[in-house]
Amino acid sequence: MIAFDLALAAGILLCAVSALTRRDRTASVAAFMVLGLLVALSWVRLAAPDVALAEAAIGAGLTGALFLRAARRLGPLRPAAGRTLAVPAALVASGLGGGLAWVFASASPPAIYAPLVAASLPESGVSNPVTAVLLNFRAWDTLLEIAVLVVALLVANLLGSRRLVPVSLGEMTLPFARIVAPISILLAGHLLWQGSSAPGGAFQAGAVLAGGLLALVLAGLAPTGTLVVRGALIAGLSGLAVFLIAALGSEALTGSLLGYPNRAEKVWIVAIEAALTLSIAATLCLLFTGFEKRKTS
């Protein structure tokens, strides 16, 4: 298997160089998306399927779509200026990278957290350790992460990012959207439910749902009125609201923030995750489609 690992690592580095040096914007974005998929594959090799799922759906899919949209709007690459710094920058960067590789190769990993998580896993209410960490042991971090998502949504809203107006893509995209959108809803529900015991969870489910929604938007099947956008904005903000209400509710019931009542942990976790799935899907979708049809003035 070491040969496969070496080939994969070489492919990842080649894609990264290609994504960051190609002059053609579309080629560079394509290389970035391939990089995301290869990285997801390497994370499966590192026994982290939860993260690999998220990277494949969000890192490769949605980020790539965002980059393609921006590439179209920003126009061709500007001519490079200031070549003088290239050599010192290359030296410093390779020194940092080499030093990091050496440090990690020579250090022995601390084995504190994994046994701790394994020991308290039965109390968490779920059997997938990653979900237990995300929504029980370190639920605070996840709450703040959702706050970051809300801030990004509000920034994009305040900037009044231009609404995406899909060009008609022809008859062929209609059956695609009609098949993919229902399957993505089913898949999102499956990932959400499965997340408590196997790889999956709110982030992966939200990303898959956002992908299905975007297929509908790009095929021109989704309604695009101002009311719909406003409703999606409210749905995007509701994740943080539900999470905060759950935090306050658990404080009132058990006396500790996000310390769920005994033996009802799974219900609380799945309920929060369901709200997060909808909110993440709406947020990601809105961040891609933009908010208002601003006039080009």
């Binding site: 893509l169 022809g170 062929m172 059956p175 695609f176 098949i179 993919v180 898949l187």
Partner: peptide
Amino acid sequence: GLCVLLTAISGATVGHLVAR
């Protein structure tokens, strides 16, 4: 089976769009 179905549909659609 779902994987095969999804790649078949998306492959056909993307191929059509690129050619178009």
